[in-house]
Design a protein around this nucleic acid. Structure first.
Lengths: 211, 211
DNA sequence: CCTACCGATCGGTAGG
DNA sequence: CCTACCGATCGGTAGG
């Protein structure tokens, strides 16, 4: 009700809130939304169960806070837009490598992404779509500067095909990592992925209507 | 212990089991593994809660039964391998359309796929990898017949890039369907996807080592 | 004596 | 921010 006006007082509250979000990120990612309990999260964040409800109205709003901080699309788009590269192939290679490195270093990103889709059916997307779209436009501008053939393709179409191919490659990699050893270890390399992206996207741009 | 010898008696049991698996598929897909209760599943299958335990030792084994019948990779590979098409582009177009149609008609497929990844971390993959691999080999043979440039690419590498790109396109489509109306409706068409697949995969095959 | 299944309830834990 | 506690429901199993 009252606005919190004393900074030194709200600071401790913010720290507690941050611990709760961090603990929730880890536990939601590990056990899923229904599989992680408020008590587990409270313990991990070293607060009492009731303490969480001083910062979040219910479990669902805690998940929302986690999503709005840690949704992979929110994290990966700025990184992709700032990728370096003097040629199209170099740019795509660096972008793909950056994407794969980020997801491999933080396996919870894919899990949070899937949990949001399963338990909330993508309902949080509208909350950060504006931010996404701005980064998408910038990414497309950089691409056109490297190869003008991309000027006929809508920025969002490029973003969908680019991100979609990367996501699919990462997911299939996860699946293949569960296949027992008698079978091949590395099936499909980052080089293969880069080839698909560079030549596939150029072909798609060439057949796009210049609207 | 004893082998079931009288068919007419076990038939009713099989019918009950089938109803349970069907109900579990729908409810796991809708609410997730931890979000769907054994009571909900029992009600939907018109059996008592205890009745489920005559067929499955616990909730986890019920999920396993659902996965081994309905995992999308298990369903989609035979369909892809039997796709018709007299040219590479026609084959890829029909395969992509068949994939997208199947997933759009049965939205539970993607959800079951993700639920297995989140709650069981792909642990069921080994159970049907052999079947997958056989179909993969056949799919690759059909492709080489249409365009011999694919003979240098390993069948599983092709399958990973092909399925991965399709999965990524479908998932990004799901995400975009949640974006509010002021923004564009169709971002990326099936034609764009086909272009990426045809030209991307040819490029990847061309740069593959002929081992 | 078997299978499939019932009504009722077990010990614990969920979100609030 | 905590302790205490609620209505309800969880996965699983008893005897018949």
């Amino acid at each position: 009700m009252k606005p919190k006006s004393i900074a030194s007082k709200t600071e401790r509250g913010q720290q507690t809130r941050d611990r709760v979000v961090e603990a929730a990120l880890q536990l939601f990612a590990e056990h899923g939304y229904h599989g992680a309990s408020m008590r587990q999260i409270a313990d991990a964040a070293t607060v009492a169960v009731g303490g969480i409800y001083n910062h979040f109205r219910n479990k669902e709003e805690l998940l929302t806070a986690v999503i709005l901080t840690w949704h992979p699309l929110l994290l990966i788009m700025p990184a992709l837009a700032e990728t370096e590269g003097d040629s199209l192939e170099e740019f795509v290679r660096n972008a793909a490598q950056g994407f794969l490195d980020t997801f491999r270093e933080r396996p919870e990103l894919l899990r949070i992404f899937m949990i949001e889709m399963i338990d909330f059916d993508g309902a949080h997307i509208p909350y950060f779509f504006e931010t996404m779209e701005a980064k998408t436009t910038y990414l497309h501008e950089r691409l056109v500067a490297l190869d003008e053939r991309f000027c006929t393709m809508a920025p969002l179409t490029f973003a969908r095909l680019f991100l979609g191919t990367l996501i699919g490659f990462y997911i299939t990699g996860k699946l293949l990592s569960r296949v027992p050893p008698p079978h091949v270890q590395t099936i499909g390399t980052t080089d293969d992925l880069v080839q698909v992206l560079v030549h596939g996207l150029i072909a798609a741009a060439a057949s796009s209507p210049a609207d």
